[in-house]
Computed example of a mutant assay.
Amino acid sequence: MPAHSDTTTEPTPTDDPRSRRRRLEPDERRAQILSCAIDMFGERPYAAVSTAELAQRAGVARGLINHYFGNKRDLYLAVVRRMVTLPRPDNMLVPAGPLPDRVDASVRWLLDTIGEHGTTWVKVTGLEGIGDDPDVQRILDEADNAAADRVVQMMGLSDSLHSEQLRALVRCYGGLVKAAGREWIVRGSLDRAQVHELLSDTLLTLITQSFPKVNGTN
Rank of each mutant, 00 (worst) to 15 (best):
3 A>P: 01
5 S>T: 15
5 S>N: 11
6 D>N: 15
7 T>A: 14
9 T>I: 14
11 P>A: 12
12 T>W: 09
12 T>V: 14
12 T>C: 08
14 T>C: 14
20 R>M: 11
20 R>F: 12
20 R>Q: 13
25 E>M: 14
31 A>I: 09
31 A>H: 06
31 A>C: 08
34 L>P: 06
34 L>A: 10
37 A>C: 08
37 A>Y: 00
38 I>P: 02
38 I>W: 03
39 D>Y: 02
40 M>N: 03
46 Y>H: 08
47 A>C: 10
48 A>P: 02
48 A>C: 10
51 T>K: 05
52 A>Y: 11
53 E>D: 12
56 Q>P: 00
57 R>M: 12
63 G>W: 00
65 I>G: 01
67 H>M: 01
67 H>T: 12
70 G>L: 06
71 N>M: 00
77 L>H: 07
78 A>Q: 13
90 D>M: 11
91 N>H: 13
92 M>I: 10
93 L>S: 08
95 P>T: 04
104 D>F: 02
106 S>Y: 03
112 D>I: 00
114 I>H: 06
114 I>W: 01
115 G>D: 09
115 G>V: 03
118 G>A: 11
118 G>I: 00
121 W>D: 06
122 V>Q: 06
122 V>W: 06
123 K>Q: 05
124 V>A: 12
125 T>K: 08
129 G>I: 04
131 G>L: 05
132 D>T: 12
133 D>E: 07
134 P>K: 00
139 I>H: 06
139 I>P: 05
140 L>F: 11
147 A>C: 03
148 A>M: 00
149 D>W: 03
153 Q>H: 15
154 M>H: 01
155 M>Y: 02
156 G>C: 11
157 L>W: 12
159 D>N: 10
161 L>T: 15
162 H>I: 04
163 S>W: 13
165 Q>M: 15
166 L>T: 07
167 R>C: 03
169 L>N: 06
169 L>R: 04
170 V>K: 05
171 R>M: 10
174 G>R: 01
178 K>L: 11
179 A>P: 03
184 W>F: 10
186 V>G: 04
187 R>T: 04
187 R>F: 11
193 A>P: 07
195 V>D: 03
197 E>C: 05
200 S>E: 04
202 T>F: 01
202 T>V: 13
203 L>Q: 06
204 L>T: 09
210 S>K: 00
212 P>Y: 01
213 K>F: 10
215 N>H: 09
216 G>N: 01
